[in-house]
Design a protein around this nucleic acid. Structure first.
Lengths: 142, 142
DNA sequence: TTTACTGCAAATAATTTGCAAAACT
DNA sequence: AGTTTTGCAAATTATTTGCAGTAAA
C-alpha cells in the first residue's frame, strides 16, 4: 500500500487523473509483489469489480512504463509481464519448460554492463532483462 | 553456399525432404549473413519466385530452430529474428531507438553463465539472448 | 466546465492451423 | 506409392485504436 501511494502521488503530480480503475490496477500489481501479465491483472481486478476493461489495463500499463514507474519484460512466448519497481532492478530467469520466473540479483550483471559500455558504447537496459533457460527442477525431471 | 549445404545435408540425414521452398529459405538466411524476420525472408525469396507462402516460411523456421540449426531471437517490439548458426553463438545488442542489432561476442557472457549455474542451477540459453539498450549513435543524437 | 479517461467493438499484426492438393523419395 | 510438405484461407492471440459517453479536476 505504501509503495502504491507513492506511485499514485507521483502520477497526481505529473497531472494524471486518479481514476478508480488506475488505482485498482496499481494496487493489484504492487500488491502481488510479482510480475503479472495484462490478463492476470484484469482477472485479479475483476474479482473485485467488473468495471474495468482490458483496454484500460493496457493503457495504464503503457503509462506506467512511460513514466518509469513499472517495468515491462517480454518473456518471449508471446507473454509480456509487468511489475512495479518496488524491488529495484533484477534479472528474470525464465524457465522455458515450466515457464517459472526466478528473480536474480542485478549485481550479477554489473560487469557485463561495464563491458558493453566500454567495448560498444552500448548503454544496456539490464533491469528489464529476461534470460531464458532451464531451471533445476526441470533439468531433474527430464 | 557451403554452410548452406551443410545444413541441407544434415536435414536430409534426419529424414526431412528437400523442397525448393526450404532450399530458398535456407539460402536466403544463410546468405544474408544476418538476422532476418519472417517477413524479410519471404520478401527476399519473392524477388526470385512467387512460389513460397508465409506459412511455409514459419514452418521451415520452426523446424530449423527445433533441429538446432537456427537461432530465434525475440526483439521485444513484436519482431522475431532468425539466423543460421554460421557465426557461432553471440549476443544481440538491440538499440531500442534505431532498432539496429549489434552482434557481440559470446565470451562476454561466460562468467554470467557460470554464476547462474552455480547460484541457481539455471542453465541459461545465452546464445539466444537479446540485450536492449541505446547504441552510441543514438546517444549522441539525443 | 473542461478535457482526460473509459468502455466498447472493430482493427491490427504476427503467427498458427486444418485440410485438400502437390511433390519429394 | 506412400508420406511429407505446401498453399490457402480461416482461426488465434495479444494488443491497439476510434469514437462517443463519463467523470476527474
Amino acid at each position: 500500500m505504501t509503495h502504491c501511494h507513492t506511485i499514485i502521488e507521483t502520477l497526481r503530480q505529473k497531472g494524471y487523473r486518479l481514476t478508480p480503475q488506475r488505482e485498482m490496477i496499481l494496487e493489484t500489481i504492487a500488491h502481488s509483489g510479482n510480475h503479472m501479465t495484462a490478463d492476470e491483472i484484469i482477472a485479479q481486478v475483476r474479482t473485485r469489480t467488473q468495471a474495468v476493461n482490458i483496454a484500460t489495463v493496457y493503457r495504464t500499463l503503457e503509462m506506467l512504463v512511460d513514466e518509469g514507474l513499472a517495468c515491462q519484460t517480454d518473456l518471449g512466448d508471446g507473454k509480456v509481464i509487468y511489475a512495479t519497481l518496488q524491488h529495484g532492478p533484477h534479472v528474470h530467469l525464465v524457465c522455458k519448460l515450466c515457464r517459472q520466473v526466478i528473480d536474480a540479483d542485478y549485481e550479477m550483471l554489473s560487469p557485463l554492463n561495464e563491458q558493453l559500455l566500454q567495448k560498444f558504447g552500448f548503454s544496456a537496459d539490464l533491469q528489464h532483462i529476461s534470460i531464458f533457460g532451464v531451471c533445476t527442477q526441470c533439468k531433474k525431471g527430464e
